[in-house]
Design a protein around this nucleic acid. Structure first.
Length: 555
RNA sequence: AGUUCCAUGGUGUAAUGGUAGCACAACUGAUUUUGGUUCAGUUAGUCUUGGUUCGAAUCCAGGUGGAACUACCA
């Protein structure tokens, strides 16, 4: 039985449009980032939506850079955005820029002036704000509102020709200064900016505002469904007004609720602050909710896509538990990541009855979830590194690991029994002595003994050293943006912990940045960009579910 | 205050006038050479008041609560 997946509200609109033929049977979407920052997981939601819809309905999705503000936009951002979209697994039909349309947009503005629907205003930005009115008070007409068409045409051309300084004049649409929607109170549609543009260079010194660029760009590209986030809902009447006055292709805008996630922030302005103020190491810091940060941390594109699918699309404000993202990445990595052994917090274990100098090569499965995952060789010897937390001097009840007299299995090797241990003057365990059961070897265990615990290990003489970076949430509170004061006061001071001496099995010696593993019993880890063959560096992507930690916490 | 949008378990999201379901989280138990995975199960929800209707989460009206808007940013 194939259960029918229910449609989200945008899919319903599209299916209705398709059924009624309102868009001529076409679905054309676009993903319209402004190149003034790196993409984050919230953008991923929009990307999956826009590209996903195009794919589902045999349409196309454009990548369009909304580059109408030269003072904040840079080529570096354009490149990172393209890389991130591709990495997420999507291919755009056309790579476009709002700046491609500057000539057309200028012509549109001229048309509006000719229709008596736009005028050049000499007011300062403060004056315009002051006469805007408020939610309970209508605005006042500008003294320049009734300039005649010819004068407006001349002045606008002079603006374009660089006759005026920044801020000296603007072009405004003539709508209604008493409109209840503040955005329709004669919005500014062109402003003067003597700034170098990353694409058009110094060709222009006037630039269209968002409202005078976005809808028209959609229309030029014959976008059928222009999907954006809720905060643009008030812009829709303006979007429609320009299209109607200009008599151009009627694209339509639909709004959905943006993604919010616990323990992070999702505004480019705030993320930029973290970068600029050195709170993180860069846009791709593994603690950042950016696509590049998550990629570096070890997230798979597949996990992010699955996450976006799972959270759904609706119009109500939401706050997604970051735990859901972690679930998606575990689910993805559980299937794909090879298992290896790494000891993060080492303590030495000596097998007192194992011959000195002897070495065995054990063959272990790479991935029990993947029948075709293959095997690898892991060396075994008399001395082992094991995890400090896998030994308790006075074992708690239900502690199925090592302690005086207790038995465990060394993963893929032998069952061992703890006979003795050594402590230093501070009471720290320095060495654990065990005897192994030769007849309990993995694969042909004839000992007849069943132990409840299995622990991971790395042979001391064969171990490689690596640096491991452990990450915790970037913020201490669920919603830093809604707290009192500056959001940066809520940064988690312990969001990263660097372990400089982690012992890993030799099979990891040739790992390359981007490789992903499960460190057995610890979590998923990815080889960092900083990793070299001389110095291996791993990032913790996410831990395994740890029901023992939960049990231990209960006391 | 005005306008617009929204309201379903702890968190998300379905049910489109006809049995309130799914995922995550939480909690039991089984399996397990990862205290992982897998499997079985449990807890828990329609903001409120009226109306329409044989029947309302759904339609209507009023309340309540939340969000957004008052940049020469997008």
């Amino acid at each position: 039985m194939t259960e029918e997946k229910s449609l989200n509200f945008i899919e319903e609109i599209i299916e209705k449009d398709l059924a009624e033929g309102t868009t001529g049977g076409r679905v054309q979407t676009r993903f319209p980032p402004e190149p003034n920052g790196y993409l984050h997981i919230g953008h991923a939601k929009s990307i999956c939506l826009n590209f996903g819809l195009a794919k589902k309905y045999n349409g196309q999705c454009n990548l369009r850079f909304d580059d109408t503000n030269p003072s904040t936009e840079e080529t570096e951002y354009v490149e990172s955005i393209k890389e991130d979209v591709k990495w997420l697994g999507f291919q755009w039909a056309n790579e476009l820029y709002a700046s491609n349309y500057f000539d057309q947009l200028y012509a549109f503005a001229t048309q509006l002036i000719q229709k008596g629907l736009a005028y050049v205003d000499d007011s300062t930005s403060e004056e315009i704000a002051a006469t805007k009115g408020s939610t309970f008070e209508p605005g006042k007409n500008s003294p320049y509102r009734d300039r005649n068409v010819d004068e407006n045409l001349r002045l606008f051309e002079e603006m374009k020709d660089g006759k005026y300084k920044d801020g000296e004049k603007v072009l405004r649409a003539k709508v209604d200064m008493a409109h209840p929607n503040l955005l329709l109170r004669d919005p500014v549609i062109y402003r003067i900016k003597h700034a170098h543009h990353h694409r058009t260079g110094d060709k222009w010194c006037i630039y269209p505002m968002y409202d005078f660029a976005h809808g028209q760009s959609d229309s030029i590209e014959k976008i059928t469904h222009s999907i954006c986030t809720l905060e643009f809902i008030h812009h829709r009447p303006l979007y429609d007004w320009f299209i109607e006055q200009l008599e151009i292709y009627p694209s339509h805008q639909y709004e959905f609720a943006r993604l919010n996630m616990t323990y992070t922030v999702m505004s480019k302005r705030k993320l930029l602050q973290l970068v600029n103020e050195g709170q993180v190491t860069g846009w791709n810091d593994p603690r950042m909710p950016t696509i590049s940060g998550m990629r570096r941390r070890g997230y798979t594109a597949d996990a992010i896509r699955q996450f976006c699918e799972t959270i759904g699309v609706a119009k109500r404000e939401n706050m997604i538990d970051v735990g859901l993202l972690e679930f998606c990445v575990r689910e993805s990595l559980n299937k794909s990541a090879n298992r290896v052994m790494a000891v993060l917090d080492p303590v030495k274990l000596v097998l007192t009855n194992y011959p000195e100098g002897q070495t065995e090569e054990l063959e272990l499965d790479n991935n029990p979830e993947d029948p075709n995952g293959g095997t690898r060789i892991v060396p075994f010897s008399r001395e082992m590194w094991i995890e400090r937390e896998d030994f308790m001097e006075n074992p708690a009840k239900k502690f199925f690991r090592l302690g005086p007299g207790l038995m465990v299995r060394l993963k893929g090797a032998y069952i061992i029994k703890c006979d003795d241990f050594k402590k230093d003057e501070n009471g720290n365990i320095t060495e654990i002595h065990c005897s192994y059961l030769p007849e309990s070897k993995s694969g042909n265990d004839t000992s007849g003994i069943n132990v409840k615990g299995t622990i991971h290990w790395v042979s001391v003489p064969h171990a490689k050293v690596a640096e491991v970076r452990l990450y915790d949430r970037l913020f201490k509170v669920e919603d830093p943006s809604s707290e009192e004061g500056d959001f940066k006061e809520y940064i988690n001071p312990n969001s990263v912990e660097v372990l400089s001496t982690v012992y890993i099995e030799p099979a990891l010696a040739n790992t390359k940045p981007g490789d992903r593993f499960q460190f057995l019993r610890k979590g998923y880890f990815a080889t960092d960009l900083d990793s070299t063959s001389e110095k291996l560096v791993f990032n913790k992507t996410v831990g395994l579910k740890d029901t023992w930690a939960k049990e231990a916490k209960k006391g």
